[in-house]
Amino acid sequence: MTKRLSIDAALVVKNAAVIRQSILDAFEEDDTISLDLVDDQAVDLCGLQLIESARRQARAVGKTLVLERPAAGFRSVLDAAGFLTDAPSDDLQFWFHEGSAQ
């Protein structure tokens, strides 16, 4: 089963603690978590770091984390922060659903 977790709050530093907790709670409920981010959701580096951290958590506990939709709106921030330079294919797959389907 896939647990869909929708995140309406901006992915920014002030919401980081709350979002972290809701993702952790979701991991408790299911093996696959799909993050539903709204379009044009505000994001900052702290938010990106949090998503990275969530991916690590999934790997560490043997669960799966995906995005409900490609996060096209994050591309400019990801690019500016240097996350896309030499990015491995699973990063591109995760963020933009590019490459082979998971």
């Binding site: 530093v13 980081a16 603690a17 979002i19 972290r20 993702i23 952790l24 991991f27 580096l45 702290c46 770091q49 949090l50 990275e52 951290s53 969530a54 690590r56 958590q57 790997r59 560490a60 506990v61 500016a80 922060a81 240097g82 996350f83 330079t85 030499d86």
Partner: peptide
């Protein structure tokens, strides 16, 4: 400029201090 982010120090969610900074460039 060619910018490469280094997220290798970002801990898993259960260990992260959510507002701390772990990135490097």
């Amino acid at each position: 400029a060619r910018v490469v982010a280094d997220a290798s120090r970002v801990p898993p969610l259960s260990q992260i201090e959510p507002t701390d900074h772990y990135l490097a460039w």
